[in-house]
Design a protein around this nucleic acid. Structure first.
Lengths: 342, 342
DNA sequence: TCGTCAAATGTAAGCGCTTACATTGCTAGG
DNA sequence: CCTAGCAATGTAAGCGCTTACATTTGACGA
C-alpha cells in the first residue's frame, strides 16, 4: 500500500476494446456464456484475465435491478447462538452464488430497523430476520418494496411473513414440565429482556403455563430480566438467590445466561444440582463443555439455517409467497438438573 | 408479503418533483445540507418522508465513487474468537457512519481471495483482514486498486500492509516458559493447520524456542495439527495421549481446541491438571467458564478491533499510509495448568 | 442461386445518483 | 443606479453496466 495513487480500475469497455468486441458481448460472456460462440468467449475471458477485470457491483445492480444478495439482521454476533444457524444459512446461499450481508442490531428494535433499511437500500434481493415481532409499518414497508422476507428462530403461522423455526412456547413447556416433575416448587427464571423479543416472552409464558398446569401459583415464579451475556447471567443469578423463598432451580432463557449463572453458583459455593439446578436453552457448545453439563433445549440450528436459505431463495427467484416450517426441539438432560434436596 | 407485485421504488427524481426542486438540490440536501437554504431543505426532507424515499446504494456508489463501506474477511463466524474483536471494529465504524460487510473464508486461502475480490467489486473503500500471510499477488492487486488494507491479529512490522495485533511468537513464548518452569518435559501441542496460517506457525515455533532455551530437545515436541473446533480438539487430544512418551501437558493453539481437549480428558478419566495440564490461547469466555478454568494467553480483542477501525478509517479518509500497532498480551493462570505429577 | 431464418454480435438507451458548471437573484460598494 | 460577487439553485454529463432491439452472417432448403 505504498505506491502513489494507482492505475484506473478496468471497466467492461476496456475489456471489450482489448478483445475487439462490443460491451454487450462481454456482458453476455459473463452472464449468459452460452449465448456467445466459444472462440469469442475465450478471447473475452482472456482479456478479462489480462486486465484483472472484475465487474462493478453498483453498476451491475443499477442496470440489472437485482444484486444476488440477501441481507440478514441478527441480534448479536458476539456469541454462538446465531452463529451456527447463520453459517449454515450462508453456506447454502453460497451454493447458489448468492452473497450474504450480515448486520447486527444489538437486540435493539431501532437499530434493527436502521439495518433493514440499509440492507434494502443496498439492494438486498431478500431479507432474513430473527423473531417475528416488529412494527407492522416495517413489514408494510418491505411488502410495498416487494422484498421477500423470511423470519427464523420462531415458528408462528400467523406472522405476516413465513417463519421457519420452532415453537418457543412448547419447547420451554417440555423443559418446565420436566423440571416440575423432578419436584421443584420454587422456580427462578432469568430471561432476556422481553420487550420486543417474542422468543423470550414465549419462553417465560411457557414456564408459567407449566406451573399452572401443575397446580402451582404461576405468580410465585421469581423472575429477573437482564441483558445478554455471561456476566449478566451471573449477576441475575446472584440476585435471584437472595430472594425468599430461595429457588431450587433457575431456568434461564438461553445457554449463555445459564453458563453465567452456573459460574456464579460455583463462586458462591453452591453445588449444582445439589443446592440449585440450572437449565438453559439452545444447546450451544458451551452447554456441553461446562461442568456439570447443562440441561437445556436442543435447537436444530444448522437445519434451520439451511431450510431458511432454501425457502428464501425460492421466494426470491420464483416470486412464490414462501412457506413456513416448524422444526422440532428436544430437551437434553445433562448434569445441571436434579431433584431438589429434601 | 401477500400483495401482488408492488409500487415502484421512489427515486431522487420523484422527491425532486414533489418538492418542486431539481434533483441536484435533493442530492445536496442529503449529502451537504448546509449548501441548501433551510426552507428548501425542509420541503425536500418532507417529500423524502412522504415518499419513504431512501437512496439507491448502487447508483450512489456509481456516481460518487465511494461507498462508505469497509469489508472484512474473517476465518470463521462460528465462534467467539473473532466475534468480539469484530464487534468492537463494527461499533467504531458505525460511529463514523460506515457500514461493515463481513465475509468468512472457512480458513481457506482460495475462499478468502474470492471473498476479497467480491468485497472489492462491491466497492469496499477499505479492507480488514486477519493474519498477514497471503499471496503477494493479492497484496499487489489491492495495491493497484488503491484499496487501503489493514491486517489484525498479528503484529508484523515487515508485512506489506499495516498490522495491528500482538506478537504471536512472544505471547506463546511467555506461556511456554511458564509451562516449562512448572516442570513439564513432555509437551504435547495441538495446533490449527499451519499452512497459510502465520498465527499458528508462530505459536508452535514459540513453544519450540522455549524448549530449546530450556535445554530440551525441540524435536521431542509431540505435535498434532487439526482443523478448528471443539470436537477436533477432543480427537487430537486423544491421539496425543496415546503417544509415547505421554505428554504431561497439552498446549493448544487456541481456546476452542483446548476446551475440546479438556472435555475429552475428563471423558477419558484424566484429572486436569493432576494427570495432564492443558493450556489455550485467546482467553475467550469459554476459558473462564470451563472447569478447571483454562490457563491461556489473554488477547485484547476489543482494543484490537477499535484501534484497527480508527486506523483504517484514517487510511481511507485521509489517504495516509497507516501505522501498525503492537498490543500486549498476558498469560492468564487458571486451574488447568499445574506441575506434572512426580 | 436465392431467400429465409436463426445464431452471433453490435448499438444505444437507460438504471438513479453526484457534481462541475451555468444560471439566477440578491446584496452591497462605488 | 449600476455592477461585481456570492449564495442558492438548476442543467446536464457521466459513473459502468444490462438488455431490447437492430444488424450481420452463414447454413440450408427449394
Amino acid at each position: 500500500m505504498t505506491a502513489p495513487p494507482t492505475e484506473r480500475t478496468p471497466t467492461l469497455a476496456d475489456v471489450a476494446r482489448r478483445a475487439g468486441v462490443s460491451t454487450a458481448t462481454v456482458s453476455r460472456c459473463l452472464n449468459t456464456p452460452d449465448r456467445v460462440i466459444e472462440e469469442t468467449r475465450n478471447r473475452v475471458l482472456q482479456a478479462v484475465r489480462d486486465l484483472g477485470y472484475s465487474p462493478n457491483f453498483g453498476a451491475r445492480a443499477l442496470a440489472a435491478k437485482r444484486t444476488n444478495t440477501i441481507g440478514a439482521v441478527i441480534p448479536t454476533m458476539e456469541n454462538a447462538i446465531f452463529a451456527r444457524g447463520l453459517q449454515a444459512f450462508q453456506e447454502e446461499l453460497r451454493l447458489k452464488g448468492i452473497t450474504l450481508l450480515v448486520a447486527s442490531s444489538s437486540y435493539r428494535a431501532d437499530l434493527e430497523e436502521e439495518q433493514i433499511r440499509t440492507l434494502v437500500a443496498r439492494g438486498a434481493d431478500g431479507l432474513f430476520l430473527i423473531g417475528a415481532h416488529r412494527d407492522p409499518a416495517l413489514y408494510d414497508f418491505l411488502n410495498r418494496r416487494g422484498i421477500p422476507t423470511l423470519v427464523a428462530w420462531v415458528h408462528d403461522p400467523n406472522a405476516p411473513v413465513p417463519t421457519i423455526g420452532f415453537d418457543n412456547h412448547s419447547a420451554m413447556l417440555d423443559l418446565a414440565r420436566r423440571v416440575i416433575a423432578d419436584g421443584h416448587r420454587h422456580i427462578g427464571v432469568i430471561s432476556a429482556e422481553q420487550a420486543g423479543n417474542d422468543r423470550a416472552r414465549a419462553r417465560v409464558a411457557a414456564i408459567r403455563a407449566a406451573m399452572d398446569e401443575a397446580g402451582l401459583d404461576p405468580d410465585a415464579l421469581s423472575l429477573v430480566e437482564t441483558a445478554y451475556g455471561i456476566d449478566e447471567g451471573a449477576a441475575a443469578f446472584e440476585a435471584l438467590m437472595q430472594r425468599t423463598p430461595r429457588p431450587t432451580v433457575v431456568m434461564c432463557g438461553n445457554d449463555v445466561l445459564a453458563v453465567g449463572a452456573m459460574g456464579r453458583a460455583k463462586e458462591m459455593g453452591y453445588d449444582v444440582p445439589g443446592d440449585v439446578s440450572i437449565t438453559g436453552f439452545d444447546d450451544i457448545e458451551l452447554a456441553k463443555v461446562c461442568s456439570p453439563g447443562l440441561t437445556t433445549v436442543h435447537v436444530p440450528h444448522r437445519q434451520m439455517g439451511t431450510r431458511a436459505a432454501r425457502a428464501l431463495i425460492s421466494m426470491v427467484s420464483e416470486g412464490t409467497p414462501g412457506q413456513g416450517q416448524r422444526l422440532d426441539t428436544r430437551v437434553v438432560l445433562r448434569g445441571s438438573l436434579g431433584p431438589p434436596r429434601a
